[in-house]
Nucleic acid binder design. Structure first.
Lengths: 329, 329
DNA sequence: CCAGGTGTTGGGAACGATCCCACACCTGAG
DNA sequence: CTCAGGTGTGGGATCGTTCCCAACACCTGG
C-alpha cells in the first residue's frame, strides 16, 4: 500500500488509492456536495480497505467546531462531581460522543458568581455544553458565544433546550400511591433550595396536599443519604404521627430508611417510605424501596446526541417517570 | 482589543498584544525551549488578559497526539457500560482530562475475537486508552501502535502499566476478619472466570483456607446483585452449614443479603456477609455491609493522568484496600 | 579584535481536513 | 449553434499550533 507504514491512513491516502482528488474523497466521506456514484463507491471501498477514520482534530480545526462536550455541574462544592448521577451522565455522553469523534470533559460550576462557564465558553476545544443541576441565574447569565450549543438536564430557557424527567408527574404518581394505600400525614424531603426542579416537585406536593386537605410537611434536602438519615429523625421529632416520607432521591430515601430503623420505626408498618430515581440498589434493600423511575442514561444520551449533531432541539424534551411499587410503600 | 469580536483569542492575538512573535509566545505557553524572563512575563500577562486557552485541536493536529482518552471495557455484552464502576472510571478520567484539553469516550470490547481495539488504535483522535476489565488474550494481541499509550485498570503486562487496587490484600483482610470473628465455613462468590483479578482473590482464598484447614466453597460470579441472590440460595443448598459468605463486589454482597433474607437466614447471626468495593450505599443497608475499600476514582484518575502527561508509568501501581468493618460481619 | 559558544528570537513549513472557487462536461431550450 | 444551468472534479487557501532552522545579540577567552 502507499500508506506510510505504522501510521493511520489519511484522506490523502484514501484519495490516492481511489484515484480521485482529496476534495472528492472529502465530499464522499463527509457526505456533502456532489460526487458521481462511481467515485462514491471507489472512495468508500478505499476508505474501509485502509481502515480510514477521519482525524477529529483536523476536522474540528477547519470547521471551528471544537472537539469535546463539556459536562458542567452546578453545586456547592466540587464533591458534586462524585455523585453517581453525574457519573452516569458523563458515561452516557462519552458513549454517544465516541462515534462523532467527541470526547467528554467534566467541570464544576460553583453556585455563586464564578466565571467558570465563561472559561468553558472561551475554550475552542469545547463543541457543546451539557448543564447539570442548572440554576436560573446561570441561565440568565449564559455567555452569548454558547448560544445554540448548550443543553440543560433540568430547567431550560428560550435559548437553552431542556432534557429532563417529568418530575411533577413522577412525584404525583408516588403521592397518589401513598394516598391510595391510606397514608394521610405525608412528609416530603425535597431537593436543594437553589435547584429549580425542587420547586416542581414541591409544588406538586403542596397542591396535592391542599386539594386532599392533608398537612404540608416539607423538609429541605440535598440528595444525599446522610441528609435522609437526619431528615427522618427531624420528621419524627417534629411530627410524630407522620405515616409516610417521600424523598425525591433514592439515596436520601435509603438514608431515611436507615434513620427510621435506628429509631425503631417499622417500614412500611408504621411509616411508608418512597424515593425517586430507581437506582439499581433500590431493589435490594430490606424492605425494597418503592420509587419512581428516572431514565438518566437516556436523558443524557439524548442531550449529548442533540449537541453532537448540532441540530436545534425542541425547547423541552420530557421523559416519563413511572412508579415502581416495591415493599417500602 | 485587537481580538476579533466574539471569537476566542488565538496565540497570534496573544503574541501581538505581548509584542513578540508567535513562536516566542508558543514557547512560553507550552513551556518548551528558551524565552527571556521579560518575554515570559509579558506573554503570560497577555494570555490571561485575553483569557487565552490553547486550541486542543490545532495542538493535537501538529503534535500528532490525539485529542481524547478512550475508556475501553471488556465484557460479555454492551451492558457492562452501564456498570456504576465503569461510570465512575469515565467520570474521573473526564475530570482530569479537562485541564489537558482531553475528552473521554467510552467503548465496549466484546470478549471474543473482535477488532474493536484495533479500530480504536487506528483512530487519530485517540491519545491514549484506559483498559477496564482487561483480559490476558487482549493484552497479548495489543495493537503495536498502542504501545506506550495504554493503561490497564486491572492486570498489566510488560508493555502495559497496571493501575489496580490490591485485590489480594483486601481479600486477605476480609478473610482474616471473618476468621477472627469465629467463622470457619466461609463461601466465596468470585468474579467472572475470564477476568484475571478473579484468580488473584480466589487464590488468596484458597491459600488461606488450605493453611487454616478450612473447606473451599467457591462460586463463580459476575459482580451483579442478581447473581448474589442466586449465589446465596446455591450456597445454602449445597453447604447448609455455611457461616459466612464473602462476595468480591458490593452489589453482589447486597444481593447475597437479599437472598439470605428471603431464606429467613439471620445476618450476621447465622451467616456473616462481606463485600468488596465500599460503594456509598453499603453503609445504608440493614445490616450495614462489612467490606473492603476500593478507591476506583483515585485509580482511574491516576491512570488518566499518566496517559495525559505521556509519562512512562511504573509497571504496577497498586492502591491499598482497607477493611471497613460494619454490622454484617 | 575576533572566533565560538550561549541564549533568544522570528520566519516559514508542516499537520489533515474542509470548502471556496474555477473549470469541464453534458443536456436541453431558444 | 449558442448559451444557461445543473453535475462532477481538482487546486489551492485556510484553520491554530508546533517545531525546525537560520539569524542575531551578547559574552568570554585567546
Amino acid at each position: 500500500m502507499t500508506t506510510r507504514a505504522g501510521r493511520p491512513a489519511t484522506l490523502e491516502d484514501v484519495a490516492r488509492l481511489a484515484g480521485v482528488s482529496r476534495s472528492t474523497a472529502s465530499r464522499v466521506i463527509a457526505g456533502t456536495g456532489f460526487a458521481s456514484t462511481a467515485a462514491r463507491s471507489r472512495v468508500t471501498a478505499a476508505a474501509d480497505q485502509l481502515g480510514y477514520v477521519p482525524d477529529p482534530a483536523a476536522r474540528a480545526l477547519v470547521r471551528g467546531a471544537g472537539v469535546r462536550l463539556a459536562v458542567a455541574v452546578c453545586g456547592e462544592s466540587q464533591a458534586v462531581l462524585d455523585d453517581p448521577y453525574v457519573e452516569q451522565v458523563v458515561a452516557n455522553a462519552a458513549r454517544v460522543g465516541g462515534p462523532y469523534g467527541l470526547g467528554v470533559s467534566l467541570h464544576w460550576l460553583p453556585l455563586a458568581g464564578s466565571n467558570a462557564l465563561h472559561r468553558i465558553a472561551e475554550d475552542r476545544g469545547v463543541r457543546g455544553v451539557v448543564l447539570v443541576n442548572t440554576t436560573e441565574p446561570l441561565l440568565a447569565a449564559l455567555p452569548r458565544s454558547l448560544r445554540g450549543r448548550v443543553a440543560s438536564l433540568g430547567v431550560g430557557s428560550a435559548d437553552v433546550p431542556s432534557f429532563d424527567v417529568d418530575n411533577g408527574g413522577g412525584a404525583t404518581q408516588v403521592l397518589h400511591h401513598l394516598y391510595a394505600s391510606g397514608r394521610r400525614r405525608i412528609a416530603m424531603v425535597a431537593g436543594p433550595r437553589w435547584l429549580p426542579c425542587t420547586d416542581r416537585s414541591a409544588r406538586a406536593y403542596q397542591r396535592l396536599s391542599r386539594d386532599a386537605g392533608l398537612p404540608v410537611r416539607l423538609l429541605p434536602g440535598d440528595f444525599t443519604a446522610e441528609r435522609g438519615r437526619a431528615a427522618a429523625r427531624e420528621a419524627m421529632r417534629r411530627w410524630p404521627d407522620t405515616d409516610a416520607i417521600f424523598a425525591v432521591s433514592d439515596p436520601t430515601a435509603l438514608g431515611v430508611l436507615a434513620g427510621l430503623r435506628g429509631h425503631g420505626v417499622e417500614v412500611p408498618g408504621d411509616v411508608a417510605v418512597a424515593g425517586f430515581d430507581d437506582i439499581p440498589l433500590a431493589a435490594l434493600t430490606a424492605p425494597a424501596l418503592t420509587t419512581a423511575s428516572h431514565p438518566v442514561g437516556r436523558i443524557a444520551a439524548a442531550a449529548a446526541t442533540a449537541l453532537a449533531e448540532g441540530a436545534r432541539a425542541a425547547p423541552i424534551t420530557s421523559f416519563p417517570s413511572v412508579l415502581i411499587p416495591r415493599e417500602s410503600a
